[in-house]
């Protein structure tokens, strides 16, 4: 009592994010057979703050499980977590994180610092190592938030063991990310201005084009399906908080600037 640590409170009630021991009775675990995973998520700084986007597909092996997954999750009014990896674990981590920040703010009567939030996610990933090492619970998220201390957005990415890294301009994760990481690097380094100088409209166009590119080369990343009204989740973060770009606007932008121009 009194320290504002929600995970400790949960543990005192018998909760465990990951079981300490997982037994497959000596048999090799075929993770692909039943684990839903793979994705493409990205975050980059633009003129108005930070943009975070993710595709909507969830797969298990070669099976498409779901095409409307929300992989960019609001954690609080000024922070989001984009998830790549096993959804069951990733959504659970997001839920613990969301409640942890709320619990801290309400019990300690002040907001948790951004450094504290970044570390909280790292600790959860470390707690999840047993599941990650057995191939059925790996998560490699991106965490993005507005930092009032420097009046700017910040982007952090993690490996599945909990190591945290702050990215200067952009971060990508998921099975489709290698295909777009280079594109972002190229765009940022050799176009007239860095990606961080893009206005919001152009930033959304870039994010949608990157996700369509990832979907082209990665079967586990879902592209836009206009007929079914399926678009990526695109959110922006700045001093006013987290805002989701509405589907209607994504639809307009897609028609005008993302739909196929050349085969």
């Amino acid at each position: 009592m009194g320290e504002g640590d929600f995970l400790d409170l949960l543990k005192s009630k018998g909760y465990a994010l990951a079981p300490a021991h997982f037994s497959s009775n000596g048999k090799a675990v075929s993770a692909e057979a039943f684990v839903s995973s793979a994705t493409t998520i990205l975050a980059f700084k633009y003129q108005g703050g930070v943009l975070v986007a993710g595709d909507r597909r969830a797969t298990a092996g070669t099976t498409v499980m779901y095409d409307r997954a929300d992989k960019v999750i609001d954690i609080d009014s000024h922070a989001v977590m984009a998830i790549a990896g096993v959804p069951a674990t990733a959504f659970e981590i997001a839920r613990v994180l969301e409640h942890s920040f709320k619990y801290y703010r309400r019990s300690q009567l002040q907001d948790l610092s951004l450094e504290g939030k970044v570390r909280a996610l790292s600790k959860l990933l470390k707690d999840n190592i047993p599941m990650a090492m057995q191939g059925i619970g790996a998560v490699a998220p991106i965490f993005a938030a507005y930092d009032p201390k420097i009046s700017s957005g910040r982007i952090y990415f993690y490996d599945m063991l909990g190591a945290e890294f702050e990215s200067v301009e952009f971060a990508t994760s998921g099975s489709g990310s290698p295909g777009i990481r280079g594109v972002l690097h190229f765009q940022n380094k050799w176009r007239d201005e860095p990606v961080s100088s893009l206005p919001e409209e152009e930033a959304v166009v870039l994010a949608m084009r990157l996700l369509e590119t990832a979907a082209e080369f990665d079967a586990a990343t879902g592209g836009v399906k206009q007929g079914a009204n399926v678009y990526p989740i695109v959110k922006t973060i700045n001093e006013n908080g987290v805002r989701e770009i509405p589907i209607e606007r994504l639809n307009t932008i897609y028609d005008a600037q993302v739909a196929v121009r050349h085969v």
């Binding site: 009592m1 929600f6 409170l9 949960l10 009630k13 839920r95 613990v96 409640h99 709320k102 619990y103 309400r106 019990s107």
Partner: peptide
């Protein structure tokens, strides 16, 4: 009441 509310909500 904070503990009860947050554990229940989670």
């Amino acid at each position: 009441v904070l503990d009860m509310a947050h554990v229940e909500g989670f």
